[in-house]
């Protein structure tokens, strides 16, 4: 199994940390992982993206031009990454702020209203965990208990009290992801 993912959105949405938690979850189940962020001028333009790969085998290139899954959280990222999903692959997006919705017919498209759900749950910071939940429902590549172990590893101990909230957010994401085509 190899899963090649791009996660893209605005800086501050938790794009990089979502990728990190996913990567740590992979390590918890003995997988090879890589996480490569855009750290150059594009980051300074306000968008953030990270390539995350989980695999049972040694990972080759940590940078890619085609992905099994794209998790897209703003319009700029939609414009840039819709075309990069492999035929038969998956695109998951939050419709909040999206004006041009994805149009491809050769991929599976899912919608997760992460921003709305996080607001309703009373904490916009868990937005990325709602989206992660949506992704894990569509592609259950890591087990929930490994995600929790991954969260423990990637969060400082003083934030461990927030893990149940994060777990709830993931569960809400799993319940609310909608298949479009």
């Amino acid at each position: 199994m190899t899963e090649e993912i791009i996660i893209a959105g605005f800086g501050g949405q938790g794009v990089l940390s979502m990728g990190k938690i996913l990567a740590y979850s992979g390590i918890m189940q003995d997988q090879e992982v890589s996480w490569f962020p855009a750290y150059g001028p594009e980051m300074r333009g306000g968008t953030a993206n990270v390539t995350v790969i989980l695999s049972d085998e040694r990972i080759s290139s940590p940078t890619l031009t085609a992905y099994d899954t794209a998790i897209i959280l703003n319009q700029q990222s939609m414009d840039k990454f819709e075309e990069t999903v492999k035929p038969g692959g998956v695109l998951i997006y939050d419709p909040n702020g999206i004006t041009h919705h994805p149009t491809r017919k050769d991929i599976k498209i899912y919608k997760i209203e992460g921003a709305r759900i996080a607001t309703e749950m009373g904490n916009t910071k868990i937005f990325n965990m709602v989206v992660l939940g949506g992704y894990l429902k569509v592609k259950p590549i890591v087990k929930m208990d490994n995600v929790i172990r991954g969260l423990k590893k990637s969060l400082h101990e003083r934030y461990h009290k927030l893990i149940p909230l994060n777990e709830d957010a993931i569960t809400m994401g799993m319940k609310n992801v909608i298949e479009i085509n």
């Binding site: 990190k20 990567a23 390590i27 090879e32 992982v33 890589s34 996480w35 490569f36 962020p37 750290y39 990972i59 940590p62 940078t63």
Partner: peptide
């Protein structure tokens, strides 16, 4: 290089 320095792996 910047790629090896900036990426995270196990």
């Amino acid at each position: 290089d910047g790629l090896i320095g900036q990426m995270m792996e196990k």
